[in-house]
Design a protein around this nucleic acid. Structure first.
Length: 292
DNA sequence: CTCATGCCCTGCTGGC
DNA sequence: TGCCAGCAGGGCATGA
């Protein structure tokens, strides 16, 4: 559920504190949180204790710190994913143990870095850094994640071409992180409501102009959410200081079942979709004539 | 290769 | 009051 705006809020919070600091210790409090770590807790500690943190980066919903184990050594990635309930918090040392705390990083500073995750879909692990398609680097496990629509290197023409070749519905495509990243259920529904398009509209039936318009809405809604510190329905989606964003007050479709569409007044509908829910206005977003 | 589905997990809510 | 079903859903494995 943390999508691009929420993850970027967290990235900025980490970027304001972590670079220049060193990792003095790591405590794994829940094994599932490091299930993607090769070699388990022992290997994680061996790799990052004593490492120097250089930068905090993001690709889609993945975050990573570039860390250097020893001066002069090759940099590594400390990858972090929030899943749907993960938090990265920088509490003062005196705060004590956090509920649902899964991994604690000691920093030899006035704060620790905690990975907290109620539903344990997220996790942290180390990974190799490889060159990306431009001039930077990214963890090898993140190579399959596409750039997001706010990324300056996002290739809009290639996206439009690839999207319209997909043999599936538009929302499935928007949620496919290997086609375009950072979009989850909330911002997919919001973008489709703004574009007045039904979630099952076949990708092949979208014109290039429609894709352009939809992409503009995707960028607008995510930028607006970012400006308001992200979306929060409950206490799960918070910045590094545990504070919620305010964008949930601005949602037009997501979570508004039976409430009037802000354009036409028709009651918003919630419908099952991919074992989840889709919210749409039945009048503004008509079902496609030919189902996928 | 593309596409669809099921699973992982915990806490909260609503019905009976 | 307690119990249980349903729901929240990102990413990945698997099978068609």
């Amino acid at each position: 559920m943390p999508e691009l705006p929420e993850v970027e809020v967290v990235r900025r919070g980490l970027d304001a504190y972590l670079p220049g600091r060193s990792i003095a210790g790591v405590s794994v409090l829940h094994a599932r949180a490091i299930r993607r770590q090769r070699g388990g807790a022992r290997a994680l500690a061996a790799e990052i204790v004593g490492a120097h943190i250089e930068t905090v980066s993001r690709r889609g919903k993945y975050l990573w710190c570039v860390v250097r184990p020893r001066s002069g050594s090759e940099p590594r990635a400390l990858v972090m994913h929030l899943g749907m309930s993960g938090q990265l918090l920088l509490p003062a040392l005196s705060t004590g143990t956090l509920r649902h705390g899964r991994v604690k990083f000691s920093l030899n500073a006035d704060r620790d870095l905690w990975f907290v995750d109620q539903r344990t879909f997220g996790g942290v692990y180390t990974d190799d850094l490889v060159a990306d398609d431009q001039h930077g680097s990214l963890p090898s496990s993140v190579e399959h994640i596409a750039r997001d629509p706010l990324d300056p290197d996002f290739d809009e023409r290639a996206f439009s071409r690839d999207l319209r070749r997909r043999g599936t519905g538009i929302k499935r495509a928007l949620l496919d992180q290997s086609l375009v990243s950072g979009i989850g259920n909330i911002y997919a529904d919001e973008s489709l409501w703004r574009t007045r398009v039904h979630y099952d509209k076949p990708c092949a039936t979208l014109s290039a102009a429609q894709v352009r318009e939809m992409l503009d809405h995707v960028r607008d809604v995510m930028s607006q959410a970012l400006d308001q510190g992200g979306t929060s329905f409950d206490s799960l989606y918070v910045n590094v200081n545990g504070e919620s964003g305010y964008f949930d007050r601005s949602l037009d479709a997501y979570g508004r079942e039976n409430q009037p569409c802000r354009r036409c007044g028709t009651a918003i509908r919630r419908e099952p979709f991919m074992n989840r829910s889709s919210y749409r206005c039945p009048r503004c977003q008509r079902a496609p004539r030919q189902q996928v």
